[in-house]
């Protein structure tokens, strides 16, 4: 049951859900959650490849780096979102309409 393709399917579902989430959510933090899903899709792939293919340990190391970098990115994104909120009193991405050309 736990085959490589089953893992890859989980990864693909997470990835696609994340992309849809990024595309449809208006809320800045909601979009960030979509990003986390996308990154986890990749993570599942890495760990599965690490287990089942000749990628070996490199997959696990890579996924560790992803987790760390994603945390850093989320911290910055959150700081930016809070800053946006302080200026606009909303976190709705579409409500920011100062920048139009």
């Amino acid at each position: 049951m736990a085959t490589l393709n089953a893992y890859l399917l989980v990864g693909a579902v997470l990835f696609v859900c994340g992309v849809i989430c990024m595309a449809t959510k208006r809320n800045g933090i909601g979009v960030l959650m979509g990003v986390e899903l996308v990154l986890n899709g990749a993570n599942v792939n890495f760990v599965a490849f690490s287990k089942f293919t000749s990628l070996g340990l490199d997959g696990q190391v890579f996924s560790l780096f992803i987790i760390v970098l994603a945390a850093a990115e989320a911290a910055v994104a959150l700081a930016i979102a809070l800053n946006f909120y302080n200026n606009h009193l909303t976190i709705d991405v579409d409500r920011g309409n100062k920048l139009k050309g």
Binding site: A2, N40, N43, I67
Partner: peptide
């Protein structure tokens, strides 16, 4: 949990702790 099942304990724990 899938990571634990794929014998990636450390990555799984890191996922829980950090993510």
């Amino acid at each position: 949990a899938l990571f634990f099942l794929a014998d990636a304990d450390f990555v799984g724990a890191a996922q829980l702790l950090i993510y």
